[in-house]
Write a protein that binds this DNA or RNA. Sequence first.
DNA 1: GTCTATATTATGATAGAC
DNA 2: GTCTATCATAATATAGAC
Lengths: 202, 202
Amino acid sequence: MESAGQPVANGELRVVQHSAARTRVLDAALALFAERGVSGTSLQMIADAVGITKAAVYHQFRTKEQIVLAVTERELGRLGPALEEAEAHGDGSQARDALLVHVIDMAVRDRRLVRTLQFDPVVVRLLAEHEPFQRFMDRLYRVLLREGEDGALEGAMLSGAISSGVMHPLVGDIDDDTLRTKLTNMTRRLLGLPVKPVAGTG
Amino acid sequence: MESAGQPVANGELRVVQHSAARTRVLDAALALFAERGVSGTSLQMIADAVGITKAAVYHQFRTKEQIVLAVTERELGRLGPALEEAEAHGDGSQARDALLVHVIDMAVRDRRLVRTLQFDPVVVRLLAEHEPFQRFMDRLYRVLLREGEDGALEGAMLSGAISSGVMHPLVGDIDDDTLRTKLTNMTRRLLGLPVKPVAGTG
DNA sequence: GTCTATATTATGATAGAC
DNA sequence: GTCTATCATAATATAGAC
């Protein structure tokens, strides 16, 4: 299992089952990254949050960048199954819609990680530099973006609207269920789709 | 002119005319903040970008936080006149619309600063902690947000859609004029407003 | 898996000369 | 307004014991 310590493989996003110790580090790191940004978070802070020393953290991850990489891969990877399902259903509007609901669901449930994954400069650079991330994002956009000249802009605005819709100070006191419903409706409005109740998975 | 080195005054956002040397520092800092984030930018990097030493930077600003403060105040302050004009025209939809056009215009023209002002953790903290910023944002939202229970969410999504619409990798190759027009149209669609041509200022 | 201890470099910040 | 020189601290990272 030494591959878990390596950079992201050249192929797909790996789904790694981390050890309990590694998981504790990643959880603490993610929380700190969301609050203070990746560059604003030191290994000392992560170690303190876990309740261990820096050296123990370095035993789990060779560099800070490896931690960022692992966090990003783990969280982004959670969209993998939904993406594969959508791809299996062809490129119709139904597949796109189902994936969109899933993305909104994940964004609402884990609001704090949105800022890190979408906007942190360090993560953005990682996503741009590592091929597996690029490929994964390409696949995501291929399903989510609509055909036509405005597809890219639409997708960009959509992703920002959802992100900001879950993390903006203005929406801090809206409960998850309400937020999910309203986000979905407004997303449909932005896309010019008919507004309908949120579909269940069954 | 010693007030320029002080924290933001308790009253309004100050409009400070910085010296040439200070302006060079602020310009370099803003560019670096946009690229690497505030925490990822050191005073050494800023000094190198300007072509001076750290000590010379410290002659202009007492701390790094003062630089962040000055950059934020300067850029946010550019919206001041448009905001005041909108407030003078009452709280009708016409005033909101005019301000919205202005905000989009500024976002498109200076795409790189959007990430810093809207999403950088350090700037977000500053905005939340300093009263003048809070007051300014309150005024902005009072004009931009619509009445009703969904006003806050609408505003949050709107701000994210515009931000992401100008800074997302997907839109990097769209020219300013095209982007401004399409952003305005999609913004109207999100708000459920009739889509019309962008109005001039005269 | 965790610790103590340490090396190295970078960081924010200051003093004082020109 | 800028420089050289310096300081104290914090950063990333490693070695080796338990």
